[in-house]
Amino acid sequence: MRLDRNTFLSIATMVIFGLVLWQAETFLGDYQIYIAKLIFINIILALSLNLIYGFTGLFSLGHAGFIAIGAYVSALCILPPAQKEIMWILEPIIWPFSDLLTPFWVSVLGGGLFAGVFAIFIAVPVLRLGDDYLGMATLAFAEIIRVLIVNATPITNGSLGIKGIPGHATLLVCYGWALFTLIVLARLCYSNFGNVLRCIRDNEIAASVMGINVFWNKVLSFCIGAFFAGIGGALLGSHLSTIDPKMFNFLLTFNVLMFVVAGGLGSLTGSILGATVITILLEWLRFLEEPMDLGFIEIPGIPGMRMVVFSVVLLVIILKRREGIMGTRELTWNRIFAFFRRLERREKA
């Protein structure tokens, strides 16, 4: 591949950002690093849902299910056998899961692959539905996955969940997987394959007349999205060190959906921005829940206050900028340069 200006700039930015993150512990506290890791994981989740919903137009509300599969598969792979024996108190863990121990990257890929393969079983019956019906069916499937996890006690430890998952997901590891996700999805979405997916989103009938196997391409996009959701789930489990079935309810899907819609459906850079801004906002608004002393009046801490403010922010976004931060546009180097040229011209004038 020829190394043009834009590719060079992209690689340089990735490397410099990686170096900065490598040294992050010297200038960031534990809490900031915790948030930074969460941002990268959320970026992976947002990108994966954007492929399904933003590019292919499949209104899927089953993301939490795939995230759960990734998290559980990965946790089972990296938890030391001795620890598993102690933790499974309801029913002993069955072989081969009891003796399973793999490197972290294998467990992450495994989580992704499991989620991707499981997605096929959901996709084949469900993707014949359209729009709202598809949303309901995928939502139901996510609940089925959750109930399965609760009841498969000999494998998943049931509703007790899994604790003490080794924290292999360091900042650099999360960054690496986010980059991997971005590069794979960018190459897919901005090749002719991406054009095909967007054509299916805009007009299925036209796509099928152009010789495109609409159903097969939908299944493919759905499974690739589920694969990356599984990867995000695997990292999430290791990052939080604790997972239980209650975590993977509809609210998790809703969060990811919010990143995607706020960033812009059909824009990869939009998803990155959306995930970053909203993750930070959700943490930063925590101060609203603490007791406040305004000098003349003292407000006791109100739990849940940040969600109220957050809803207002979302309402404003929806009212003022319906297509999200980026719309379907991408933040490319050409756009950035064009922006600076405009600024320069305005200053001269």
């Binding site: 054009n195 967007r198 054509c199 036209a206 007349v209 152009m210 010789g211």
Partner: peptide, 25 residues
């Protein structure tokens, strides 16, 4: 191949991208 009475293009995609969808097959 066929065209439609009511035009069925992808309005947000560029002219070139729309044509390239046809090349896919």
């Amino acid at each position: 191949a066929r065209t439609f009475q009511n035009i069925r293009l992808s309005p947000q995609m560029t002219v070139l991208e729309n044509i390239m969808v046809g090349c896919h097959v």
